[in-house]
Amino acid sequence: MFEAITDEEQRGQVGIGTLIVFIAMVLVAAIAAGVLINTAGFLQTQAEATGEESTSQVSDRLQVVSTSGNVVENTTDNYVINNVTFVVAKAPGAGLVDLKETTVQVIGEQGQNSTQLDDLDADIESVLDVDNGVLTDNSDRAAVHLNFSTTNGDFSNYAELKSGERLTATFTTASGASTTKEIRVPTTLTSDQDSVRL
């Protein structure tokens, strides 16, 4: 049944062949393991980066604390709002929020428009009442002033806001997280009011 190998040289050749096959298998397994480890490391890094970006998109947003409007008399003896002030803060759990990298989009009866807060006509220090325009702490507050006057306004297609007019402002931070605030001008504006809450 089994053939005995009597020649010693033939026995040695069989052992060397087996050893070569074994070494080749070990090398192939080592290369495959290296590829798998590299791929796993790359996927882990990518997953961590994706998780951080997704978290930032959800949490690194602004919170509108209060909204007020400046009441003025226009040329037709009606009272309108020419300036809206949004007091904003970091939302709970948010990281650093750079207001200079934040955009605001307004949508209302007069159309829609958007701009970056850094591009507002007013001087940046007077627009953003925080150092360098970065909210670092939950107690930080910033006043963002949007000018809706027909002359030197922040939005080319917007005039002053009239009584009863509705407007939606959406603030989007650099990470892509957005906060929407809907404001409505009171139906009655009088000379006794310097500003009104919106």
Rank of each mutant, 00 (worst) to 15 (best):
D129T: 15
S191L: 04
V134G: 03
N152D: 15
A24V: 12
T151S: 13
N147G: 01
Y79E: 03
S178M: 06
F22L: 12
I183Q: 09
E9K: 14
A94K: 12
S114F: 13
N138Q: 10
V64P: 09
N74E: 06
I81S: 08
N82C: 02
G111I: 01
D123N: 10
A24W: 06
T55G: 11
Q110V: 02
V80N: 07
L198T: 01
G153I: 02
V144Q: 08
L198A: 01
E182L: 03
V87R: 13
D137M: 09
E109T: 15
L135F: 05
T85C: 00
S139L: 05
T188L: 00
K100F: 04
L36Y: 13
F171R: 13
S59T: 09
T102Y: 09
A33E: 09
F86H: 13
Q193L: 01
G95A: 09
I124G: 04
V28W: 12
M25W: 10
N157T: 14
D118R: 14
V144K: 09
E165G: 07
Q13A: 13
I107C: 06
V84M: 05
I124K: 08
Y79A: 02
Q10H: 08
F42A: 15
L19I: 04
I124P: 06
F155E: 07
A122V: 04
V28S: 14
T188Y: 02
V97Q: 11
G164A: 04
L96N: 15
A169I: 03
T170D: 10
A49R: 13
T180M: 11
D123Q: 07
G164L: 01
I37F: 15
D60C: 00
G41Y: 10
E8Y: 09
S178H: 06
T151I: 07
A142H: 10
T179C: 05
Y79V: 00
V185Q: 05
S68H: 03
N78W: 00
V26W: 10
D119H: 11
G95R: 03
N83M: 08
D123W: 04
A159W: 06
S178C: 04
D194K: 11
Q105E: 15
D98T: 08
T190E: 04
V35A: 13
D98S: 15
E109C: 03
F171M: 10
S56L: 02
T67L: 01
V106H: 11
T55V: 04
I20G: 08
H145W: 07
G108K: 11
V87G: 03
A122E: 02
G153D: 06
E182F: 00
A33M: 12
P186V: 00
G95D: 12
A4W: 08
R141L: 05
D129M: 05
L161R: 09
G51V: 00
F148V: 04
D119A: 12
V84C: 08
G51M: 01
T180L: 08
S149E: 06
V130R: 05
I183L: 11
T173V: 07
I16R: 13
R197F: 02
Q105M: 13
D137T: 12
V196R: 03
V72S: 01
S114D: 14
T39F: 09
D119S: 14
T115Y: 00
